[in-house]
Amino acid sequence: MSNSLIIGQYVPGQSLVHKLDPRTKITIIFFFVFIVFFANNLVSYTLLTVFALASMFISRVPIRFILKGLTPVWFLIVFTFILHLFVTKEGTLIFDLYIFEFYTGGVIQGFAISMRFFLLILMTSLLTLTTTPIEITDAIEDMLHPLKKVKFPVHELALMMSISLRFIPTLMQETEKISRAQASRGVDFKTGPIKERAKAVVPLLVPLFVSAFKRAEELAMAMEARGYQGGEGRTKLRELKIEKRDILIYVLFACVIAGLIYTRNY
């Protein structure tokens, strides 16, 4: 049963997008978030949409996974559209309904803002769909490296993240085991009034915490026995490397930005 466990949303693959250095992906998405707000006309929107959709197709992540990532935010996108539809009073009047008046400006504005949302979410979910959590951790550790100078615990933070990732499946299995044991002792997790069900969480949480603390203690001891003494003087097996393809993507992305600035004035 544990074989089905996928941490995060990562969909394994060998595409160009998968193979990019995680730092490249994070950097590009970081800038993408900014430039999306610079788009102000049909041409600039098309440019960005083409870039986002092209990335999506190159990644070869099945569309249903991407749609699944979008489900929680569909509502937000539609809501933004409708809000603008009602509030914006620019352009020509299309028609009015009792007290509501709909203008072309509202449709365009609503569409533009929803599109921004859509593009942002598409690109960020593409990051988590094509990058393992551990790659993201490595990239963050590397990119935050300069903060070490101001005594920010970059290495410790990254190690904490990777150990948490490592233990998520273990703790999930543990939760399942304990809830089975308590269900056998007559605890009902599924039916009954909310108050009763909330109370049923105690026999689940206490053992879970006790065991998590015990694990942490043993893990700390095992790490010490294996010579862990902080980030100082450590080497790393997993290494990040900027390849030709990363440079290529940076250049391409620079072109998109240039194109965007140029088309803004259309």
């Binding site: 044991a181 308590q182 026999p203 206490v206 053992p207 006790v210």
Partner: peptide, 8 residues
Amino acid sequence: QYPEHQLF
């Protein structure tokens, strides 16, 4: 298995 893990 390891029933002591259910104590709370």
